[in-house]
Every structure is written in C-alpha cells, then in structure tokens.
C-alpha cells in the first residue's frame, strides 16, 4: 500500500507535467516570428512611453511593518492548531493557558496599533 506522504510527493511531481504540457501545446500552435532582441515589443510596458528609472527600488515601509505583525501571528497559528485539535481532551487548564497566550499577543497587537504600525500613510 502507498502511504499518504509518498503519494503526495508523487502527486506533486506529476502535477508539474500539467503546466509543462500546456506550455508545450502552446509552443506547437503559436507563431514564432524572428524578431531582433531590441525590438519594440520586448520593451517594458509603461503606458506607451519609455520606462523612467529603475523598477527594483526601495518600497514603502508600511509593507514591512505589516509583515512583522504577520510573522508574530503566524507563529501563533502554529501553536494554536495542535491545541485546537486536542481541545476536548486537554481540560479547562489548557483553555485558561491559551487565553493568557492570546491575551499576550493581543497586547502586542494593541501596541502595534497604538504606535501606528497599522496605519497607512
């Protein structure tokens, strides 16, 4: 018998064949005109004008702040799932413990909120 995780790996490997086949099929049908690499159509689209300046620049700091808050809560999710599965078995003490744990994180969210990390400038 095939167990779950090897089956998942095999499924993943054969799934890669799906987009590859689609691209191969498109390669068979699509026109392949010979164009110089500096042809107009290979330029970056920017509403018809030539591109100005670099694309890969520094970005708004707000995105980074959101990512930091996300990281804290993502770790919390990892802790919460095993607890939730065994919730019926663990008893009231585990529930109170988890309330304290969530409260600590809520203080963190409140702090981020107060400091304006969740505002969009």
């Amino acid at each position: 018998m095939l167990t779950n995780y090897p089956a998942l790996g095999i499924f993943f490997l054969i799934t890669i064949a799906f987009p590859v086949t689609a691209m191969g099929l498109a390669w068979l049908f699509r026109p392949k005109p010979k164009a110089a690499p500096d042809d107009e159509k290979f330029t970056t689209y920017e509403c018809g004008v030539n591109t100005q300046g670099k694309t890969w620049i520094r970005f708004k700091v707000n995105y980074f702040l959101y990512a930091l808050v996300f990281l804290a809560f993502d770790v919390e999710i990892v802790f919460l799932y095993p607890w939730a599965v065994k919730f019926g078995v663990l008893g009231p003490f585990a529930f109170i413990e988890m309330i304290i744990f969530i409260a600590i994180l809520l203080i963190g969210l409140w702090y981020a909120w107060k400091e304006g990390a969740l505002e969009w400038y």
């Binding site: 099929l25 498109a26 699509r30 392949k32 005109p33 690499p37 159509k41 330029t43 970056t44």
Partner: peptide, 9 residues
C-alpha cells in the same frame, strides 16, 4: 493557445 509568447527583455 495561438498567441505569440512575449518575454520582455
């Protein structure tokens, strides 16, 4: 399926 594949330079 029959559209040209353009990869920007």
């Amino acid at each position: 399926l029959t559209k040209e594949d353009i990869v920007p330079s």
